[in-house]
Design a protein around this nucleic acid. Sequence first.
DNA 1: CCCCCCATACCTGCCGGTATGTTTGGCCAT
DNA 2: ATGGCCAAACATACCGGCAGGTATGGGGGG
Lengths: 196, 196
Amino acid sequence: MSSELQDSRERLLVAAINVIRVKGYSATRVDDIAASAGVTKGSFFHHFATKEDCARAATVHWSALSGTLFADAPYQQLTSPAARILAYIDFRISLLTGPVTTYTCYVGTVLHEVHDTHPALAADSAASILQDAVRLEAELTEALGPGSDAHSLAIHIVATIQGALLIATAEGGSHGARASLAHLRRYLEHCLGDAA
Amino acid sequence: MSSELQDSRERLLVAAINVIRVKGYSATRVDDIAASAGVTKGSFFHHFATKEDCARAATVHWSALSGTLFADAPYQQLTSPAARILAYIDFRISLLTGPVTTYTCYVGTVLHEVHDTHPALAADSAASILQDAVRLEAELTEALGPGSDAHSLAIHIVATIQGALLIATAEGGSHGARASLAHLRRYLEHCLGDAA
DNA sequence: CCCCCCATACCTGCCGGTATGTTTGGCCAT
DNA sequence: ATGGCCAAACATACCGGCAGGTATGGGGGG
């Protein structure tokens, strides 16, 4: 069946995401990805022309995965825009469980590493990160009303989340990351309270 | 003279820092570092046993550089601890000029990439980042008094700064990073105001 | 004369990519 | 339905270049 095609390809994409955010892009070998997906290098190069091509495809796959993750999250049921923002932060905090490598951000990891060596991959990664900010900005304008600098606040949220993930990597645990996001939440309460 | 030794070694360390934060650790070749320092690979392996050894030495050099940078900064003259904290943020913002690769954080770049493949290097990088938090925590306890959670706030500051640098990499400019740090400053005003 | 610093030349394992063989599965004519 | 056929999916074997690391040489100061 044709789902086998999608299956193998998707297995490779998921494997790429998981391996790369553990070992980094350059240090990840094509054989690592193939082995993690349970296929061989021949199959890998059947689906992707180059390693970078796979990583770029993984970027859009990552965007899709995180998109549905947040779109289907329970907090979307909340009617108040302000409450939805705060619940989003709570949801992000709740994701910080288990081994650090299970909740780090694929595109954040890649972007740092390849921004100068692989421009196309870097552009895709940057777009994926900034797309989150765009989605947040829409929510924030709804909560704060027009005229507010929802844009810069959205950027700030994305930045802090990414920074918290780096702290988690540094500490080898989620303690500091949770604390940082809790501070972010307090700041957002402050901002949203002003607008209310 | 013996200063020539220090000179070559330090040139290699500075070169390593600059090249690695542009190309990443794995993608950086030993020849790149040597060429950037104006010496040959032979000289490189005279000073460092391995590439990782050089990167680790670069980490402590980075800590020393940033340590003196902030120790000698003009804002240290301020007598009020709270004002010194805010001035620190302003100082960090003022550093965000010129090409992005000139103000990104060496240890932050490295940590993301090698946390699983080179544990010793990752530990050094993590220590360098968390050391900043320790320094900040001391300042914050001075400003907020004992009993405050200066620790988590220090972590939050470090995290947000690192996140802002990633945003700068994503955007290819400092606009969003500046905005994010401005939000951080506002939050700190809020916290410090509560304590005053 | 000798030791430290650095350069030149080389070696070797590794990894991205290729070339080619093999299986699977869908489809059509009979 | 069925057998044959072709294309897509996947595996195996291999190549070639690259980069980390080494062995050796030279030069200058003490």
